[in-house]
Nucleic acid binder design. Structure first.
Length: 341
DNA sequence: CGCGGCACCTGAGAGC
DNA sequence: TGCTCTCAGGTGCCGC
């Protein structure tokens, strides 16, 4: 489930249904979905069985569940550090990233088509079911399984170590304010809904780029959580063209753009996310309904609603950009000449 | 070293 | 029916 609001919907579902529960069994139906686990699917399983999910944390589109080991009362981890933090990684962290006491997390990225579903064990397997986790039954009537379903396999799960980022700030949006960040998410910038997001840092880094606005919005190391839908929606709301040169944008324009990003993603979150079909659902399999609130994305040839309100007829156009579609109103988002202003 | 293009996958739908 | 083509909410890596 792609962009920030959809991932946050999933995070909240996991916080409700999975936090505090212990993983009792792991079934890997397709090892290709254990994507970046350096030591392979079998090691992945060994790291998870007996571990308890202590929290659910998100940064941009990355989602993770910090794990506590419940096997030993003395607090010693059953998990050898080398099994989740390869030596090469330790060496590569010299620049910028300070290593702290290793903690582990179950990382998830949904890619283009991943789903995390909380279900009873008697539910039939989904066609693209990749991984099944059986969870402890601490209370009663809790669904017994957490399933990872993914048609295109761009998403995946893995267990990894967590580090503190260079700014020494807490990791992301979760319940634990001291949360660290998994190594694989440490290059991901804060997202616009993160209280620690810095406008000044974003503005100066954006201005230093020599590229177009949309390409910058989609760069997760500059600003995270924004994908193709919400980039188009935010640019439309801010009346800016996707090809506008980043080194010419002025402060008020960037303020407008960021406000638009926050606004559209918060509204999408309230609506449960954007779904065009059953591919994008919450942990209980239900679709969000923000799709009906989109102003630009997917509206080729349809009227620009802002222009219509002003009594003008302007139709949304679709351009191929970065090998994907971009939707703009040619009247209120005019294409800059020579990519400049 | 920053930027842009492309590979990684599967499936749905259109057109012939 | 089946082929080919395009398209789909993302990310990382490689060459320039």
């Amino acid at each position: 489930m792609p962009e920030l609001p959809e991932v946050e919907v999933v995070r909240r579902g996991l916080a409700r249904w999975v936090r505090g529960r212990t993983i009792e069994a792991v079934e890997i139906l397709d090892p290709r979905s254990i994507r970046r686990h350096a030591l392979g699917a079998e090691d992945f399983r060994g790291n998870l069985v007996g571990a308890t999910v202590t929290d659910t944390v998100r940064r941009g589109k990355f989602l993770w569940m910090p794990l506590a080991d419940t096997k030993h009362d003395d607090g010693a981890s059953r998990l050898a550090p080398s099994s989740y933090l390869p030596a090469a990684r330790l060496e590569s962290e010299a620049g910028g990233i300070v290593h702290t006491a290793p903690r582990v997390a179950l990382m998830a990225h949904l890619g283009m088509s991943g789903q995390l579903l909380v279900e009873d064990e008697d539910q039939p397997d989904e066609k693209h079911l990749k991984v099944r986790l059986r969870l402890s039954q601490d209370g009663d009537h809790l669904p017994a399984e957490l399933r990872f379903v993914d048609q295109r396999i761009f998403g995946g799960l893995f267990v990894t170590g967590m580090v503190a980022t260079a700014d020494g700030m807490p990791g992301g949006l979760g319940e634990d304010p001291e949360a660290l960040v998994p190594v694989e998410a440490s290059h991901i910038a804060r997202d616009p809904l993160d209280p620690a997001f810095s406008f000044e840092e974003f503005f100066s880094r954006l201005r230093a780029r020599r590229t177009g606005l949309k390409r910058a919005l989609l760069d997760q190391s500059l600003i995270s959580g924004i994908g193709n839908i919400y980039a188009d929606e935010a640019l439309w709301a801010a009346r800016l063209h996707f090809a506008r040169a980043t080194d010419t944008v002025r402060r008020p324009e960037v303020t407008r753009l960021l406000t638009a990003c926050r606004d559209v993603m918060e509204r999408a979150l309230e609506a449960g996310g954007t779904s065009f079909d059953s591919l994008y659902v919450n942990v209980n399999g239900a679709s969000g309904y923000f799709e009906r609130s989109l102003n630009a994305y997917g509206r080729e040839h349809l009227p620009c609603l802002r222009c219509a309100e002003a009594g003008l007829d302007s139709r949304v156009r679709r351009d191929t950009f970065m090998n994907r579609s971009s939707y703009t109103c040619p009247r209120c988002q005019p294409r800059p000449r020579n990519g400049r202003w």
